[in-house]
């Protein structure tokens, strides 16, 4: 499973727009394998945390209702060019990953 996170952060008039693409299967646990008929076990991100320079800006709790390879965009006030935006997630199987990018 690829664990990449692509992050873009752009500051404009005091507000930084953060856009992120996370690689994750986001299985709801309700889907069935078409060939075997077995239920595919749930595997989805439960918590996403966006922070700027180490300070939490926003925490999201997700269900399996978020699309596969989730896209997330948020806006944060007060961040400047060169600040570090970090996004970290944890899934229901205890897997986790994080990524960071500089504000442009």
């Amino acid at each position: 499973m690829a664990k990449g996170i692509k992050i873009r952060a752009k500051a404009k008039e005091g507000v930084t727009t953060v856009k992120a693409l996370i690689s994750h299967p986001m299985e709801t646990g309700g889907r069935k394998d078409k060939k075997t008929g077995n239920t595919i076990p749930a595997h989805f991100i439960q918590e996403v945390k966006v922070s700027v320079n180490g300070e939490d800006a926003l925490t999201g709790h997700w269900s399996g209702g978020v699309s596969k390879n989730p896209y997330l965009s948020v806006k944060v006030a007060g961040a400047n060019k060169g600040d570090t935006v970090t996004i970290a997630w944890v899934d229901n199987k205890g897997g986790s990953a994080s990524g960071e990018a500089k504000v442009k």
Partner: peptide, 19 residues
């Protein structure tokens, strides 16, 4: 589908893709 807790610096804006 999702619930976000906003910190003081976060603006009232969230964009995502859902099922």
């Amino acid at each position: 589908v999702a619930s976000y807790e906003m910190g003081p610096s976060a603006e009232g804006f969230v964009s995502m893709r859902i099922k």
